[in-house]
Design a protein around this nucleic acid. Sequence first.
DNA 1: AAAAAAT
Length: 423
Amino acid sequence: MKFTELNLPEAVLKGVAEVGFTELTPVQEETIPIALSGKDVAAQAQTGTGKTAAFLVSLFTRLLTSGKRTSNNPRALIMAPTRELVVQIVEDAKGLGAHCPIKVQAIFGGMDYDKQRQALKDGVDIIVATPGRLIDYAKQRVFTFDRIEALVIDEADRMFDMGFIKDLRYILRKLPDFEHRQTMLFSATLSPRVRELAYEFMDLAERVEILPEQVTAERVEQLLYHASRREKFPLLMGLLKKELDAERVLVFVNTKREAEYLTERLKANDLKAAVISGDIPQNKRMRILADFKEGKLTFLVATDVASRGIHIDAVSHVINYDLPQDPEDYVHRIGRTARAGALGKAISFADEDLVFHLPDIEEYIGRKIPSRFPEEDDFFWDYKRGAPRKKAPPAHAKPAAAAAKAKKPRRRGKPRSDGKPSA
DNA sequence: AAAAAAT
């Protein structure tokens, strides 16, 4: 099906054509007609299949005909779990909505406090926001939720998890009742638990659920190495020597601390690497992401701040240096590669501390990840810092000793050097 | 159990 067959307003079609869309993706084909009819939608679809455009096209079409912009009273709200994702959605909206008289405003923490505040006062049609800053302005009555007629929750399962649910509920309570607004839920992973929670805020009678058979994109080539903690870095270096096409590598770790440490190790080996995590100041986060997108960086070491929704062209490899704790995060992380028709490789390391997550991940994705134990020549030990230069021990040799050794430098119980109380 | 998100 083509966008031109959808009976969209001329202004929307013009934007769609300009960003180069002609054919609808399967998820767009399923969701856009339903969304245009005003029904609630809960859609799970593989990463990189055009979910953002699906809800943006629907929102623009609705808002073009439903009324006019007034100050302090936005008409639609899009919620997302990271600031980068908010920025990206706004960028997509600028392209698709280039010919629509619809004002889209990003609301998120870490930057532009007065600018965002003023924009809300002046009046916007669509807010794209992370929860914290939005609630801040709402409490100050910079704007009201009274005229919100459509709500989109992107990466819905993340928005409904422990860390976000309180803020999200606060916002949902302030919105017009679900009978007087449209609600749309999107994610690559939409668990039954999350759907149950979310349906409290949706019109059950008018809800359409779209669930795929396969959660991961088939074009991602997946591979897993069983490697001990101490083997992981030499294995990473070894892989880089072999995979000469590793031009844009996104490396995921589970903690902010590990992200910093691994980045330093890569840099010490003269590799162009940078780190992105919630500890990095917002303006730097944006610059690093831009540098990575432009190819100025080969490596981006990231926490799960970068695992969801972010589109980066031509990521050749995703490395799960730490196996993620949540199976959903595995799906989102590897979804950063092989996007929009491209190919990509996802290589995961399973060490003695994290390998126990593997069965859950494999059950979730419904298949075994091809795995192997590294060979002698998979390693490259001759890096500059912190490891023996001799030959590699066999994989999983003395895991108990390695685990015990690993616990030592954690300084448990001691006061933090920065003076703040430890969490 | 960690990450993200307001100042």
